[in-house]
């Protein structure tokens, strides 16, 4: 069980790793606009337009993130979304109103959202995003930067902890497994709390990101931070 969790979380950490892509230097406002427009399109487009959009997203995900991350995205989709699709089909069959086309479109929309998420995580750069959002509110910049980084940290932390507990703590029978999972959950809570504090310190000690970078002398980054070219 814990080995499976560790493996899934390794896949998850690849998908939600901010800035891990072949394409760099995309301005944050472009990425956010792409996210807003495409997610709306995935929700409202008719079926005959949904399929081309899904194909485009698939190619885009492959180009931006590479095959390794695309496979990881598919693994996460199968693990976390497929069971709900199966339940949905089951429920439709029970009430006697099963519609294959509607179900297929639902699956396509969910898959599209996963692919979109994967692309956006790859394109997002936390420095850039924090600089952009700081214009609206420093609190918004901090909370958004922390939230995005936290997806990644939680995945890596859970992966590491699951490995440690799979080796170190015995689980005999169902109750033993429950106890071990409980211990793992508690450890994850503590480790993630510490990670959040450290991440906050990391943001705070990058003055050009969080605090406005008031220094503008030669060699430093001035207001807004100089964005180097790719």
């Amino acid at each position: 069980m814990l080995s499976l969790i560790a493996r899934l979380m390794r896949a998850s950490s690849l998908v939600v790793a901010p800035g891990y892509s072949r394409v760099r230097g995309v301005p944050a406002y472009v990425t956010l606009s792409f996210l807003a427009v495409t997610s709306a399109a995935l929700m409202i487009l008719p079926p005959w337009l949904l399929v081309p959009l899904l194909s485009v997203l698939c190619v885009l995900a492959l180009w931006v993130r590479g095959l390794r991350v695309l496979i990881a995205t598919a693994l996460l989709f199968i693990t976390f979304v497929a069971p709900f699709i199966a339940l949905s089909i089951g429920a439709q069959l029970v009430v006697g109103s099963f519609s294959p086309i509607t179900t297929l479109m639902g699956v396509a929309r969910m898959a599209g959202l996963m692919l979109l998420g994967s692309v956006v995580f790859g394109l997002i750069n936390i420095h850039e995003l924090a600089l952009l959002l700081r214009r609206v509110s420093p609190d918004l910049a901090v909370s958004t930067a922390l939230a995005i980084k936290f997806f990644y940290l939680a995945s890596t932390n859970l992966s590491r902890l699951a490995e440690v507990y799979s080796v170190n703590l015995r689980a005999e029978g169902f109750m033993g497994e429950v106890r071990r999972l409980t211990a793992l959950s508690r450890a994850l809570t503590y480790v993630c709390t510490v990670s959040a504090l450290e991440s906050m310190e990391a943001l705070y000690t990058r003055p050009n990101v969080l605090l406005g970078g008031v220094r503008s002398e030669e060699g430093g980054r001035g207001e807004g931070g100089a964005r180097p070219t790719a």
Binding site: Y20, R215, P228
Partner: peptide, 27 residues
């Protein structure tokens, strides 16, 4: 705030902003 100080902590495991080495170096 003036950018005069840089700090590298004892436990560096969470002390980055981007998940990718290239992105962190770029910015």
């Amino acid at each position: 705030r003036e950018g005069l100080v840089a700090y590298v902590p004892q436990d560096p495991s969470s002390y980055f902003l981007n998940a990718s080495v290239a992105a962190e170096l770029l910015y």
